[in-house]
């Protein structure tokens, strides 16, 4: 990482700390902010958060690795999360999953080469009456068919 990049990331984290407060209870909102902007929380970012909140970096790492929406490995610019829980499964999740894998040329848990999409499974998204459902970043899509899912993904490019 370049010194310039480090400086700008430090500055950005400093702003998040100012916004949410220099308190342990601000840890999640701060990490969520970094995740949103950078699609992951790098080792350096974790250390910076720890320094500014005056806690041990391992505390930050422990929290990052606990929550499935916080990641310490780089994600794609868009994160697609397909619901794998039972009702979505019953109404065609598998066909949607296969279509997405074919179209993007990656498996679940992977990121496309151009870093545009990371594909993941999620547990129940609370759309059980309208499955199969998926989240694309923070937007939810329901009543998916293979065709409809691909149409949505096309728009991301």
């Amino acid at each position: 990482m370049l010194v310039l990049e480090k400086n700008s990331l430090s500055e950005e984290i400093g702003k998040l700390v100012d916004l949410y407060g220099k308190d342990r209870s601000s840890l999640l909102p701060i990490l969520q902010g970094i995740e949103k902007n950078h699609k992951y929380i790098s080792d350096f970012a974790q250390q910076e958060v720890a320094r500014l909140l005056d806690i041990h970096p391992v505390e930050v790492y422990s929290v990052v690795t606990f929550y499935s929406f916080l990641t310490h490995k780089p994600m794609g610019r868009n994160v697609v999360r397909l619901c794998q829980t039972i009702t979505c499964d019953m109404f065609g999740k598998e066909a949607v999953a296969k279509a997405i894998e074919r179209e993007l040329g990656i498996k679940f848990g992977e990121t496309t080469k151009d870093k545009s999409v990371t594909l993941e499974y999620a547990n129940c998204l609370g759309m059980c009456d309208q499955g199969p459902a998926m989240l694309v970043n923070d937007q939810v899509y329901s009543h998916l068919t293979p065709e409809k899912a691909i149409e949505i993904l096309e728009k991301l490019k």
Binding site: D23, R24, S25, S26, L27, L28, P29, L31, Q32, S62, V63, F66, Y67, S68, F69, L70, A122, N123, C124
Partner: peptide, 25 residues
């Protein structure tokens, strides 16, 4: 309003409180 980050267990009230305090749920 505070957002969770994808952990089912945080629906348990004391895990939820831990999460609000900036800890693992």
């Amino acid at each position: 309003i505070r957002l969770g980050s994808g952990a089912y267990v945080c629906g348990e009230e004391t895990a939820l409180i831990e999460s609000l305090e900036g800890h693992r749920g």
